[in-house]
Amino acid sequence: MERDDTAVVGELVCPAGTPASLRTAVDAGADAVYCGFQNATNARNFPGLNFTPEEMKEAVAYAHARGAKVLLAANTFPPAGQTDLWKRAVDEATAFGIDAIIVADIGVAQYIHSQHPQQRIHLSVQAGAPSIEAIKYYCEEFGVKRVVLPRILTIPEISDLKRQIPCEIECFVFGNHGLMAEGRCSLTNYATGLSTNMDGVCSPAQDVHYEEDQDKNLTTKLGIYTIDCFSCTQSPGYPTICKGRYLTPRKEEGYYAFEEPISLNLARLLPELIKAGVNAFKIEGRQRSKSYVRDVVSSWRHAIDSVMAGDEVDLENLLALTEGGKQTQGAYATKRWR
């Protein structure tokens, strides 16, 4: 199989929701930073977040001057009749010298492949391609150079996959632990009328409400739906549908039907991930603050450097930054997670 021998090892890929975050990430030791434009072309289309074209251009210059890469997240699905917005994002980013474009939609991938054949394409986790053939499909059809894997595979499965696909692998190692297959979730649209795939939002803040009663019990709601309730001693989470508590005839009390509010932290598995052939480690969180970015990126820089040098790693100090103060190794550690 054709393989790129210059493939990277241990690349640290970090999130940036704002230009200040991007500079923070680069300064804290990120090898690559991913970010998006201020519109529906990216899957974190949140108010006050993301980059204007001018800011993107400056961001690329800032990163390149310091030896870091910038990746554009153009990973939503353009609705028919509106593809120009995505094409413009691709054209502009390419003109700015962006290092890769992260895509999910076949139409967007085809546009880059045909109009900007030199532009490196990464397959977004939003494309939902966890199997050998699915990944090969995108590699062979659109020249994809790297796949971002969904957080559903065990390390032996990743290792097996890596041997049989012609591209690099990027894995999420820290941050929000999404449960639903990315790119195939309309839960938010069902509750709010805004689509994760087309509008780039998940639990949009405009539909989020926190209601506190006199006893300091907190109810979190998305639109008309109650997502969770917390007593005064409990830590609330952001109301995403897949992190909520619900009632079912099978259970006597409300339960986390999908997953508890918990964050992914694979620090301890880092040596095994490197052995499995994972090329790049991705930190989730373009919606988080630059102080979060600074703390997480510098900790992970240190961790990766330690593993590369054969030393022990520990990232317990990141616990305060995890959702609800809880962490998991999710599917990576055991099949029993499924």
């Binding site: 830590s235 989470g237 919606q287 988080r288 703390d295 930054l321 959702e323 609800g324 103060g325």
Partner: peptide, 8 residues
């Protein structure tokens, strides 16, 4: 971090 604060 605003999110971290909110979680706590």
């Amino acid at each position: 971090d605003g999110d971290a604060l909110f979680f706590s």
